[in-house]
């Protein structure tokens, strides 16, 4: 019967088109983009070979240092926020609200599917300070604090980006972790209760260890997503004030299209890709070690 499932013609027909598209749209451009890292210029004005200049520039460019720092700071803060708050919500759903959590779950999840641009424009207005205060500043003024120029300063702009992206995505992580928690067998929790485990000890010794795999998945997924942050920053702050909220993705985009430098743009893209690969490998490694211990 092997011959039927090994039918080469059938495999070619089923796999061929997908593989062709994948090769043309992903594999070839990745290699091509790698080739761009050794040149300077753009398709309209032509390219000239520049050796490893682009890579050397990575080490001396102050803008790349800022962009890298912003990306890492954002990824770390966001991953911690998404996973911790998401985990808190998941615990709330499953141990406190129980069956009645469906409505809250559905509601908190809604912003996940809403286009980022729409949410970013909404938050721009919520945190607006000029020409008129948005609702956040109105609240601050009413309780006696002054209004803040949220998007005009680097620190507060970063805060608004984080608040918005947590608001936008935490429902997703809550559902993800909820799905993991619900798989913990009820009898394990029940027998731990009978053995005297209460609240904190039950949480610390039973629930956390049993939800470690799903926590690791969430962290990987979160870092991989937040390292590529683009839409929310572009639509909310546009990288401003100055370059203070410009992540690598946006800096790459500007380099390629505003400054027409495909070579350096591709070098930044390569840096980003390597970061994604490294993060995934490192986390997979440490996750495996934890489980074998």
């Amino acid at each position: 019967m092997k011959s039927v499932l090994g039918d080469r013609r059938a495999i070619a027909i089923l796999l061929g088109p997908a593989l062709l598209v994948y090769t043309l749209v992903m594999l070839v451009p990745v290699v091509w983009s790698f080739g761009y890292t050794f040149v300077k210029g753009n398709p309209l004005e032509g390219f000239r070979f520049s050796g490893i200049d682009n890579f050397a520039r990575l080490f001396v460019d102050p803008d790349i240092r800022d962009a890298l720092f912003f990306t890492i700071k954002y990824a770390v803060v966001m991953t911690a926020g998404q996973v911790i708050i998401g985990y808190g919500l998941a615990l709330l759903y499953i141990f406190v609200l129980r069956r009645s959590s469906v409505l809250i779950r559905t509601l908190v999840f809604f912003p996940v599917v809403v286009p980022t641009v729409a949410i970013a424009l909404l938050f721009q207005k919520l945190f607006q300070s000029a020409p008129r205060d948005g609702v956040v500043n109105e609240l601050l003024v009413n309780v006696g604090l002054g209004s803040v120029d949220w998007l005009g300063q680097a620190d507060t702009a970063f805060l608004v980006i984080v608040v918005m992206d947590i608001w936008r995505s935490v429902g997703f992580y809550a559902v993800l972790l909820f799905a993991g928690l619900i798989d913990i067998p009820e009898d394990i929790i029940e027998s731990a209760r009978i053995d005297g485990a209460r609240h904190w000890s039950l949480f610390r010794h039973i629930i956390v260890p049993l939800s470690l795999p799903i926590l690791f998945s969430s962290i990987i997924f979160s870092i991989n997503g937040t390292i590529k942050v683009f839409d929310s920053v572009l639509a909310l702050t546009g990288g401003q004030p100055g370059n203070s909220t410009t992540p690598l993705t946006l800096y790459m985009y500007r380099t390629a299209f505003a400054f027409s430098d495909y070579g350096y743009g591709s070098t930044i893209a390569l840096l980003l890709t390597i970061m994604c690969l490294l993060v995934t490998i490192v986390i997979f490694r440490s996750a495996r070690r934890d489980i074998t211990n």
């Binding site: 092997k2 749209v25 983009s33 761009y36 398709p43 590529k228 993705t249 930044i268 893209a269 980003l272």
Partner: peptide, 30 residues
């Protein structure tokens, strides 16, 4: 389907999940 090399192909395709859009943007534009 059962055939030689399908794991290698599957891995190659999976690697694509991690590639950010920026990495394929400029060649595709060209």
């Amino acid at each position: 389907m059962v055939w030689k090399g399908r794991n290698a192909v599957l891995l190659t395709v999976l690697a694509g999940i991690m590639v950010p859009g920026q990495m394929i943007l400029l060649p595709l534009f060209t």
